[in-house]
Amino acid sequence: MSNIAKPTQEGSAAKAPAIRCRDVGMTLKKKSILANVTFEVEAGSLTGLLGPNGAGKSTLMRILTGLVPPESGTVELFGAPAGPERLGVLSFLPDRGQLPPYLTAGEWLQLAAGLYPDWSRAAERDLSGKLGVDPAQRIGAMSRGEEARLQLLTCLSRQAPLTVLDEPFTGVDLVSRERIASAVVGEMADGERTFLIATHDIREMEQLFDRIVLVGDGTIRGSHLVEDLRRSGRSVESCYREVFA
């Protein structure tokens, strides 16, 4: 195999990991936020980025998406350096992201469809039903769970090969969590999409992960294939407790 992966979404690039993060470091006001962060996310996988609040997950995700350059180290997406010019390959749900409250869900989706070149109206229709999004509802009048479902709908209606979700479950009711988890599964079933999901709440997602990457105090505290954990009689939760309890 050639070791030069083209920065396209198909073909040879499918062999390169979706994310390759090497020795990433970041300090803020002389305080170390991330140090020596190295890990990979296989293309087509669903990887959980797990760690307590304040572990550096959100900072790491902003670096992965290319929104913030790392102080040291490198990040590659499908074999090409991350950065603003690579935003097209990824769909990012930021923590505490906000949609315009004065629009209805339908108006927002109309706007988003025009904004993103990779928007799929068919996926939007399909997922609107699965996620139970009411197009007539004003965003400002939505519960946290309803807004989270609309944000996820926005992310998944794009056809970008990499989806990065930062804490999609924070403050979201149980039924919304379940609908979100089912929608994510449905979208990854064809193996074309890769997911990285940061969460400190593993209950709804534990059965979905292929791999977990544990982050604590700005460093990688472990990276495991979940099936290997289970073969040794451990669960995602027990592994998390061993590392962070």
Binding site: A181, S182, V185, M188, G191, F209, D210
Partner: peptide, 15 residues
Amino acid sequence: SVREAAAALRVNPTT
């Protein structure tokens, strides 16, 4: 189908 079963049981499609 794999997709339907995975979404219903909320497990990874590979499973």
